[in-house]
Design a protein around this nucleic acid. Structure first.
Lengths: 222, 222
DNA sequence: CTATTGTTCTTCGTATACAATTGTCGCTTG
DNA sequence: CAAGCGACAATTGTATACGAAGAACAATAG
């Protein structure tokens, strides 16, 4: 059962705590560590084949990111995203993603646009091949690229963290919504290429608004 | 030279790392640890009278919050907020604070409003007494209370972190701007009390927009 | 049968010790 | 005299050890 993460990462000389943090995030998002699961330091240390120190540091960051809650002297448990949490996260996203789209439109270099179009093209191919997993990956890549192009590291960092949580919830609810966002993504890239900030912002708002509504719909009953 | 922070905090049974984190944040914001300063773990451990472990965990969180930059195998240095950083932070704040004001207006209970008015009254007294430091504190308290009233913990957490950075920069540039925001704060609380989300949002936008412009003005040359 | 108390056990919090790496200073050599 | 090489010192990365606090469970008394 030993995950033996150093083998996975390869010869990269990244600090262990970063590898642990990445593995922990992945384990939580993928559902391997389901919400409410107790995460004792010893257990994680054994799972990852490291000592408790890197685990502790990773847990502290995971707490700051909202993936786990740490109770003093009680240990860490995987957070349980409620429908209220989803609602709150989307409320923030509805403000930040449009801002990112606007900034991206105002700053995008031609190379940025070609890069976005490349992702779009790959997504089209993946859609034809019914490879939903790949489509979801490319959707994430598109959003993350737009955040980078915005040129605002703070905005990118915050929105990225929120996006991770959205992916987590979608994973838990087995929601996909990949085909639906297809047209919207094209329009979004078009708007960014045009350099029209207002247009990009409104398109992004409609896009994230639709996703928000869909998320509300699927999680409201939970 | 020993800060001896446990004595300051008192009999509170908070984990050491949290006390270290708070002291570290305070030291950075106050300017005791100026931007660019190297923060070796041993030095901080000695400054605070604890071992390196709590320091390491605090540094990790401080890095996630953007107060320090950690280079692998090179150690931590206090971040150096550039004018671009200020610009980026305010760009995000201009979206989040108005959202918080809107939500606060839509959710505020009468007790919340009386609490806000109490802060406002204290601020008025402090202004009369020329106690600028106290006025700044109360300004912070007002903003933080509105964030809490919004009822969105994610929004509150993110905006709070951004606000800390704004305070930091204002501290570094010796900017005060306390009297200016007086009228705006009254209008903001009025809007929240009225329950008009649109109004509260627009007032907050004008408020943070003014602060943003002032910040740009003072830091642009730096 | 239930409630309360005492004990045990798990788990965290902190400190100390050791290994690995990197930057720096000095020396040598072209 | 400059440039490169090597050794040393300093600092981080990781592991291990010990002490303390809280929770769970069992036993006993009412």
């Amino acid at each position: 059962m030993d995950t033996d993460l150093p083998a996975k990462i390869g010869a990269q000389h990244l600090p262990l705590r970063d590898q642990v943090l990445a593995a922990l995030r992945k384990g939580i998002i993928s559902g391997d560590y389901p919400p409410g699961e107790r995460l004792t330091e010893d257990r994680l240390a054994e799972d990852f084949g490291v000592s408790r120190n890197p685990v502790r540091e990773a847990l502290r960051v995971a707490e700051a990111e909202g993936f786990v809650v740490i109770l003093p002297r009680r240990g860490a448990v995987v957070a349980s995203p409620s429908s209220a949490t989803i609602h709150d996260i989307f409320a923030v996203r509805e403000r930040l993603e449009p801002l990112a789209a606007r900034l991206a439109a105002e700053r995008a270099a031609p190379s940025d646009v070609t890069s976005l179009r490349a992702v779009l093209e790959q997504a089209r191919l993946a859609t034809e091949n019914q490879n939903l997993r790949r489509v979801a990956e490319l959707n994430s890549a598109l959003h993350l690229q737009i955040l980078e192009i915005s040129g605002n590291p703070w905005l990118a960092s915050i929105a990225k963290a929120l996006y991770l949580h959205v992916q987590w919830v979608f994973q838990l609810t087995a929601e996909v919504r990949a085909p639906h966002s297809w047209d919207e993504h094209i329009k979004l890239v078009d708007a960014i290429e045009s350099g029209d900030g207002d247009l990009a912002e409104s398109v992004a708002l409609a896009h994230v608004g639709a996703a928000s509504a869909a998320a509300r719909e699927t999680t409201e009953g939970a």
